[in-house]
Design a protein around this nucleic acid. Structure first.
Lengths: 118, 118
DNA sequence: AAATCGTTGTGCGAAATTTGCATAGCGATG
DNA sequence: CATCGCTATGCAAATTTCGCACAACGATTT
C-alpha cells in the first residue's frame, strides 16, 4: 500500500528566465536573517561558493540589484537585501501559500480519501 | 521594463519519491501515442537511451507496472501503457490544469496589472 | 601606519551526473 | 532459419556541479 501525495511548486520568471523560486527564496531569507552570505551558507549547510554562485546567477538576470554588499571593515563585511527584492519575496510567499493550498484542495477532490492504496 | 510571469508545476510522489510530473507525463503519452519506446524517443527528439532510463527509474519506484512490453516479433516489439498509469495520468492532467489556473488567478491578484515594470 | 580579522570574490581541478554510441538479445514473420 | 526492428545495457565521453584554496578589501585595533 503506497502513499500518494501531491507536491507543487511555483516560481517567477523575468523575461522567460527563472528568477525566484523556493530555493532562492530560502537563500535570500538566510542572507537577510544572518546578515552575510557567508553566515547564510553556514546556516543552510552549503558552501560559500555555492551560495555566492547562486546569488550571482540570480543577480545577473535581475532587473534590479538584490544585495547591498560591504567588503572589508570591522567584521570583514556584510550583505543585506534591497527593498525591491524584499517586496517581491513577500508577494512570492503569499502566492506560494495560496497555490499550495489550492493544490491540496484539488488533490483531495481528485483522489477522494483512500486514493493512497495502489 | 522587465516582464514578470508566474510558472507553476505539480507532481505526484509515491512514498516520498517523485513519481509523476510533466516530463514523465509527456514521455508516457508519447509511448502510448507511438506504440513503442523507440518511436516515442524519436517523437520527442531524445535518444532511446534517455527515454528508456527515465522509464526504468520510474518503474522501479512504481507500486504497479507501467508498461506492457513485447520484445521481438514481427515489428521487433512494442510497448503500451497499463490501465493503472493511464488512469493516474488522467487525474494528473486534471490537477495540473486546475492548479495552473489558480496560480494565474492568484498572480494577477497579487501583481495587479503592470506588475511588469521593475 | 601597520597588523588583524572576517567578509566578498574567484580560479581551477575533482567529483558527480548526464548523455549517447555501440552492441547484445529477443521472437513473430516470411 | 534468416530477417528486422524493438528492448535492454555496458561504457566512455561530455557536461555540469561542487568545493578547496587563496586573493582583495577596509574598518578597527595596536
Amino acid at each position: 500500500m503506497s502513499q500518494i501525495r501531491i507536491r507543487s511548486k511555483i516560481w517567477l520568471e523575468v523575461d522567460g528566465q527563472p528568477f525566484l523560486g523556493d530555493g532562492r527564496y530560502r537563500l535570500l531569507s538566510a542572507v537577510q536573517r544572518n546578515g552575510s552570505i557567508n553566515a547564510a551558507a553556514k546556516d543552510l549547510g552549503i558552501s560559500y561558493r555555492k551560495a555566492w554562485s547562486r546569488l550571482q546567477a540570480m543577480e545577473e538576470s535581475s532587473p534590479f540589484p538584490l544585495l547591498e554588499r560591504r567588503v572589508g571593515g570591522k567584521n570583514g563585511g556584510a550583505s543585506q537585501l534591497t527593498p525591491e527584492i524584499l517586496d517581491l519575496m513577500e508577494r512570492f510567499k503569499t502566492l506560494r501559500i495560496q497555490v499550495n493550498d489550492e493544490a491540496d484542495r484539488c488533490f483531495t477532490a481528485c483522489f477522494p480519501e483512500g486514493a493512497n492504496r495502489c
